[in-house]
Design a binder for these strands. Structure first.
Length: 347
DNA sequence: AAGTCTATCAACCGCTATTAC
DNA sequence: AGTAATAGCGGTTGATAGACT
């Protein structure tokens, strides 16, 4: 393994390709195929490394590459695929004919990611951002003052919306008797708070609503069962421990997995847990990754009244401004995976 | 008109996965 | 089975064009 020797500094040219170089590369590949990328530059008369040639060919010169602005259908597909695959750009590109992984990656980083952030959506988890919540007002509330043995997630009723890291931070801070509210206020000030669409788009819900968020949808279950058992009700929660061990250790699937699901609309769920939102992510704990479970909530549900097909053009008008795309984007996030996405392909 | 800022995207870097021996 | 070569991937950088002051 290790680095490819072709990347060594051996006088090979770097930087932008000239039309002459492009022509040489295209001519050679059309005649001989690319064969071994390592030997190609020498055979083609190019002062480039094989890696550079491969990149130029796959990202720019390949005849089947579609150039130009991404359509709404493509953008919709990217968002949907990214919610399942994470930053697996090549896997996403494989499902968008004519688009390269590099192009999709660039488009994501320069357009879609920014738009999601503006909407208060975490582009990594595709869930609302905790940093839009007001921590200091939370801490000054009477509920907090009643008990220091606070189960923060229960208190908030917002566990499904939370970033585990921030939950952990909040737990640590709240469990500290010397808690400095100023510290939290500073934390909050650094969190770019804004008027969030989250409140209306993703209303918080109680454990009761989570217990059976959609009639007819079975509750979740552990990794050995297709669905987990019903959630504990309020009185069943351990009184003097937080539920954050689920996030911290994450050795087994949380028993209350429905906490990780956000109903994104009246017919689909969304995972708030990064490891669930991005099941193929290398960061997800393999032990906690039950493939059957992970995709079940993300996929179409029986209660779905009107699936939105990937290629549907009726969903969005052909607007072109960023604001219009923002608006359309919020709809995209309420997606339901169309049947043409066979999730087994991603496994 | 000139300078500065911002957005875009082609290309590179460094790493892992796969293949060949 | 072990090692080296190669292919491929994802993150990042830097050049450049266009917008803005």
């Amino acid at each position: 393994m290790g680095r490819s020797p072709c990347c060594e500094k051996n006088g090979l040219k770097k930087g932008p390709w000239t039309p002459e170089e492009d022509q040489k590369l295209m001519d050679y590949i059309q005649k001989h195929g690319h064969g071994s990328w390592r030997t190609l530059p020498k055979n083609a008369g190019l002062q480039r490394c094989g890696k550079s040639c491969r990149l130029r060919w796959t990202n720019y010169l390949r005849p089947d590459i579609k150039r130009g602005r991404f359509s709404f259908e493509e953008e919709e597909a990217i968002i949907q695929l990214h919610s399942i695959l994470g930053n697996k750009w090549s896997a996403i590109a494989a499902r968008l004919p004519g688009r390269t992984d590099n192009e999709i990656k660039n488009y994501w980083n320069t357009h879609i990611r920014k738009r999601l952030l503006r909407m208060g959506i975490d582009p990594v988890t595709h869930s609302p951002r905790l940093d839009l919540l007001d921590l200091s007002s939370l801490l000054s509330s009477p509920l907090y003052n009643q008990s220091h043995n606070l189960n923060v997630s229960r208190f908030l009723g917002l566990q499904p919306l939370m970033n585990p890291e921030l939950l952990r931070l909040a737990t640590t801070l709240l469990s500290d008797n010397n808690l400095d509210l100023h510290l939290l206020q500073n934390l909050q000030e650094n969190n770019q708070l804004c008027n969030s669409p989250v409140q209306t788009q993703f209303p918080s819900f109680t454990s009761n609503s989570l217990q059976n968020p959609i009639p007819g949808i079975p509750a979740c279950t552990t990794s050995t069962d297709p669905y987990p058992p019903p959630l504990l009700n309020e009185t069943q929660f351990p009184s003097n421990e937080t539920s954050f061990s689920v996030w911290q250790d994450n050795v087994d699937l949380p028993c209350n997995l429905t906490d990780n699901l956000i109903p994104m609309s009246n017919y689909s769920y969304y995972s708030a847990d990064q490891s669930l939102a991005n099941p193929l992510s290398e960061y997800s704990n393999p032990q906690s990754t039950n493939q059957n479970f992970i995709f079940a909530p993300v996929l179409s549900t029986p209660s779905s009244p009107s699936p939105t097909p990937l290629n549907s053009s009726s969903t969005y008008i052909n607007s072109s401004t960023e604001d219009e795309r923002d608006s359309n984007c919020s709809n995209m996030l309420k997606f339901e995976l169309p049947y043409i996405f066979d999730v087994n392909e991603f496994m």
